[in-house]
Nucleic acid binder design. Sequence first.
DNA 1: ATTGTGGCCTGCCCGC
DNA 2: TGCGGGCAGGCCACAA
Length: 260
Amino acid sequence: MPELPEVEAYRCLAESALHRRVVEVDAPDEWFLKGGLTPSHLGAVLVGRAFVAARRIGKLLLLDTDDGVTLGLRFGMTGRLLVDGTAGVDELEYSSVRDEPAWDRVTLRFGDGGDLRIRDPRRLGGVVLAPEENRLGVDARTVTLGGLATLLGASGAPLKARLMDQARLAGVGNLLADETLFRAGLDPARPAGGLSPAELRRLHRTLRATVESLIERGGSHLGDLQAARRPGGSCPRDGTPLVRRTIGGRTTWSCPRHQR
DNA sequence: ATTGTGGCCTGCCCGC
DNA sequence: TGCGGGCAGGCCACAA
């Protein structure tokens, strides 16, 4: 699903939509527009304008117009971004690669004949005007050791739940969390504030490396743990049968031997 | 404030 | 072969 690595790929793709005049807005699914936004308002804001920057905070894609307005794009679990018919990522775990126009929730057409589309079969994403960027925590790609220590704090919440708390650390979803903790050798259920200084450094180093690695591979579902995240799966590192639990409200797979 | 839970959305997969 | 139930998880509302 779109976590930080996918949305970063979408952001790169969105750069090819910069400096092109929007001539038409098609938003047939009003549910997909959030915060009271209507199709006519979206059209009034965007038609005649061009985007000048494509930014990303966590899983939120931000498109700034030459008018000073910012469009926020969320992709939920199954949303894809297409520019001129090219997708930002090849495939998406739990979604579909079918070419189904009915799944295009928002389409922006440019004066040169191309377009930018959000295709989301399950409608879990959304588009918002002027998103509250300060509601998101520090981006997981650039978080510092000190920043990580602060956001984990002295919390007794499960480590994994804290890492997925978008208001504290932006960009980490279920698959990225499982992969990072697998690589760091840390039990997802550990109290977030209970890490030793050495474990904290290891988590920070591993998080940063895992984010870069999955951006490079092209998706959060391309981690070392992914193939084993299923019933009967064994740890790729030591062969121990993986344990499946619900932590932070999400299905969690971990190795009971080397994740402590 | 913090933490946990349930519901929303719907394509897909499995078993009958 | 068709059908129904369960599953996936990002996000938000809500409760304790």
